[in-house]
Amino acid sequence: MKTYLSVYYLIQFCGHSWIFTNMTARLLFFGKDSFADTFYAIGLVMQACQLLSVLELLHILMGVEQQAFLPKFSQVTERLVILFMVITSQEEVQSKCVVCVLFFLWNLWDVIRYPYLLLSAVGIDYPALTWLYHSVWIPVHPLSLLAEVYTVYESLPFFEVLGTFCYKMSLPFAVSIHFPYILKVYLALLPAGVLYTCSHFYSERKLYLKQQELKLKVK
């Protein structure tokens, strides 16, 4: 299982590193002009990495990974909804600047998270990386929440006009599904999910800091 997890984390790290490096290089060379076609440049790899992350839920359920399920479920589903149902489904949203910001924040966290998990899987503790893992989420997750909320907000007019994912079903009674209403409910629930995830990371950070204090006292 260690070998399998190591290969999985390595694949994810390579994918997110490629995205992060590509975005950074494009920003340095093309500046603001790179925002418009960010999704076209890295969208396919981003989709592959996020779909692959569903395996992490199975890892926890099968006992392969020892992590809390609900925070992971919240993070994975949150990204899938934003990426596939909001960004991928609306071509007009894909060229928005906020999409570039959101992808940058997601991948900034993942290029730290996956190497940390990879080293943990093989029993290696790299202090600098461990500190980054327990610290970088503090600015990244709230900023990601703001970017996600703004992305959904920017997409609402396009869903209203185009009627994407809006259906009328003829059951024993007429049922109408208006997707913008669902997105508005999702907007209200999104901060709660991110707050729950952050509280989990905060608990992990407290435990990490206590362990560091104990190590210093022993020395």
Rank of each mutant, 00 (worst) to 15 (best):
57 L>T: 01
61 L>G: 00
50 Q>E: 14
34 S>R: 06
64 V>D: 02
37 D>W: 12
62 M>P: 00
64 V>S: 01
64 V>A: 00
55 L>N: 12
59 H>L: 00
57 L>A: 03
60 I>N: 05
55 L>D: 08
56 E>W: 03
40 Y>V: 12
56 E>G: 02
40 Y>H: 14
52 L>G: 15
52 L>Y: 11
48 A>M: 13
59 H>C: 02
33 D>Q: 13
63 G>M: 02
34 S>H: 03
36 A>V: 15
62 M>G: 00
53 S>R: 11
39 F>D: 06
43 G>M: 07
38 T>K: 05
53 S>P: 06
49 C>W: 07
41 A>H: 13
60 I>T: 02
44 L>H: 12
35 F>M: 05
62 M>I: 07
41 A>T: 11
61 L>C: 05
40 Y>R: 15
46 M>A: 15
55 L>R: 03
63 G>A: 01
48 A>S: 10
41 A>V: 11
42 I>A: 11
51 L>S: 08
47 Q>K: 15
35 F>V: 04
34 S>D: 06
35 F>C: 10
41 A>D: 10
53 S>N: 12
47 Q>N: 11
32 K>N: 09
50 Q>R: 11
60 I>Q: 04
36 A>Q: 15
60 I>M: 04
56 E>A: 04
34 S>T: 05
59 H>K: 04
37 D>C: 07
33 D>S: 14
47 Q>G: 14
51 L>W: 15
44 L>S: 14
53 S>M: 08
40 Y>A: 15
58 L>R: 03
38 T>Y: 04
34 S>E: 06
44 L>C: 11
45 V>S: 09
40 Y>L: 13
45 V>T: 14
64 V>Q: 09
59 H>P: 00
58 L>C: 08
40 Y>E: 15
36 A>K: 15
64 V>N: 01
62 M>H: 06
35 F>G: 02
33 D>M: 11
55 L>W: 11
59 H>Q: 05
50 Q>G: 05
61 L>T: 06
64 V>H: 04
53 S>Y: 05
37 D>Y: 11
47 Q>D: 13
54 V>W: 08
60 I>A: 01
56 E>F: 04
60 I>G: 03
36 A>H: 15
40 Y>N: 13
51 L>E: 06
54 V>H: 03
44 L>Y: 13
57 L>I: 09
35 F>E: 10
56 E>P: 00
53 S>D: 11
36 A>C: 10
51 L>M: 13
52 L>N: 14
